[in-house]
Simulated assay, not measured.
Amino acid sequence: MEAQGVNRIKTIIMMLFNTTDTNKDYLKESKDTVGKAFSFLEKIKMGGVGSGKLVIEEFSAKLQPEDLLASAINYATIVLRPRGIIVHFSNGSNRYSWIIPYYRLVIYNTRTFTIHANGHFIKCKRNKNYHDNKKFLDKMIDLKNDSLNLEYYDG
């Protein structure tokens, strides 16, 4: 019994959940950590809160599914929440959700588009999918800055 508790703590610290089936821990943790999903009206006002598909190039070791299909193209989508984001990705028939509060979110936009949090990352290709999502990604960065009240950087 204690080993299950340890695994759950590790999962919550990393905030990665298998959401192939309904996962009550994920539902509670996502609401507590990044807030409830935006209402229908808020989604319309914001012009949408979900990204299109981003092609995953690489996972950090702890995010990589154990049953990773090497031949499959893996995609990620990002959903905005009031206090953070949720990155969803699939591997075969399994779906995973990574909860990231804005205060832990770090983005690198170099040769790849990389999402970092708590020492883990997902690198996405900067291909047509990335460029199709550029407006959404800018909105995500603006929401992060607004939520963290980073106006002191504006000069």
Rank of each mutant, 00 (worst) to 15 (best):
residue 20 T to P: 13
residue 88 H to R: 14
residue 145 N to K: 14
residue 92 G to T: 04
residue 108 Y to G: 04
residue 72 A to H: 06
residue 18 N to K: 10
residue 131 H to A: 13
residue 111 R to H: 15
residue 129 N to W: 11
residue 58 E to M: 08
residue 95 R to T: 05
residue 59 F to M: 07
residue 85 I to T: 03
residue 12 I to Q: 00
residue 46 M to K: 03
residue 3 A to F: 09
residue 142 D to L: 13
residue 11 T to V: 03
residue 154 D to F: 01
residue 101 P to Y: 13
residue 139 K to N: 09
residue 25 D to N: 10
residue 49 V to E: 01
residue 45 K to C: 00
residue 114 T to H: 10
residue 43 K to D: 05
residue 150 L to P: 02
residue 120 H to I: 12
residue 60 S to C: 12
residue 9 I to V: 07
residue 147 S to V: 15
residue 11 T to C: 07
residue 99 I to R: 03
residue 40 F to S: 08
residue 123 K to A: 10
residue 42 E to W: 11
residue 11 T to S: 13
residue 37 A to W: 05
residue 29 E to G: 07
residue 21 D to E: 09
residue 35 G to P: 01
residue 115 I to A: 01
residue 11 T to P: 02
residue 127 N to Y: 11
residue 6 V to Q: 01
residue 25 D to W: 01
residue 138 D to P: 15
residue 1 M to N: 09
residue 10 K to H: 10
residue 29 E to F: 10
residue 117 A to H: 00
residue 4 Q to S: 06
residue 150 L to H: 14
residue 130 Y to P: 05
residue 61 A to S: 13
residue 21 D to C: 09
residue 29 E to C: 12
residue 134 K to L: 11
residue 117 A to Q: 00
residue 63 L to K: 02
residue 144 K to V: 02
residue 17 F to S: 05
residue 137 L to R: 10
residue 100 I to A: 09
residue 140 M to D: 02
residue 153 Y to Q: 12
residue 104 R to V: 07
residue 40 F to I: 12
residue 23 N to E: 09
residue 97 S to L: 04
residue 155 G to R: 14
residue 93 S to V: 03
residue 91 N to A: 02
residue 145 N to R: 12
residue 135 K to Y: 13
residue 48 G to V: 02
residue 22 T to F: 05
residue 125 K to G: 15
residue 87 V to H: 01
residue 9 I to Q: 08
residue 148 L to V: 12
residue 140 M to E: 10
residue 130 Y to V: 06
residue 144 K to I: 12
residue 27 L to A: 11
residue 135 K to W: 09
residue 103 Y to F: 14
residue 133 N to E: 05
residue 46 M to L: 03
residue 110 T to Q: 12
residue 72 A to E: 14
residue 115 I to N: 01
residue 37 A to K: 15
residue 87 V to I: 15
residue 118 N to A: 13
residue 137 L to N: 10
residue 137 L to T: 04
residue 113 F to V: 05
residue 56 I to W: 00
residue 54 L to N: 00
residue 100 I to W: 07
residue 65 P to V: 03
residue 96 Y to L: 09
residue 85 I to M: 00
residue 104 R to F: 04
residue 16 L to F: 01
residue 143 L to W: 14
residue 24 K to R: 15
residue 2 E to L: 05
residue 94 N to I: 10
residue 102 Y to V: 14
residue 55 V to H: 15
residue 75 Y to V: 05
residue 1 M to R: 10
residue 59 F to T: 06
residue 73 I to V: 11
residue 110 T to F: 11
residue 46 M to W: 05
residue 52 G to I: 06
residue 58 E to I: 13
residue 64 Q to H: 14
residue 18 N to A: 07
residue 131 H to G: 14
residue 84 G to P: 12
residue 97 S to N: 04
residue 64 Q to K: 15
residue 5 G to K: 03
residue 143 L to R: 12
residue 90 S to Y: 02
residue 148 L to I: 08
residue 139 K to R: 07
residue 14 M to A: 04
residue 21 D to S: 06
residue 39 S to V: 04
residue 39 S to T: 13
residue 92 G to E: 08
residue 53 K to I: 08
residue 67 D to Q: 15
residue 123 K to D: 12
residue 10 K to L: 06
residue 80 L to W: 04
residue 96 Y to Q: 01
residue 147 S to F: 14
residue 57 E to T: 08
residue 3 A to Q: 07
residue 1 M to V: 06
residue 47 G to Y: 00
residue 151 E to M: 08
residue 29 E to H: 06
residue 139 K to L: 08
residue 58 E to C: 06
residue 9 I to R: 06
residue 32 D to W: 09
residue 155 G to Q: 14
residue 45 K to S: 02
residue 75 Y to M: 13
residue 124 C to E: 07
residue 22 T to E: 14
residue 22 T to N: 11
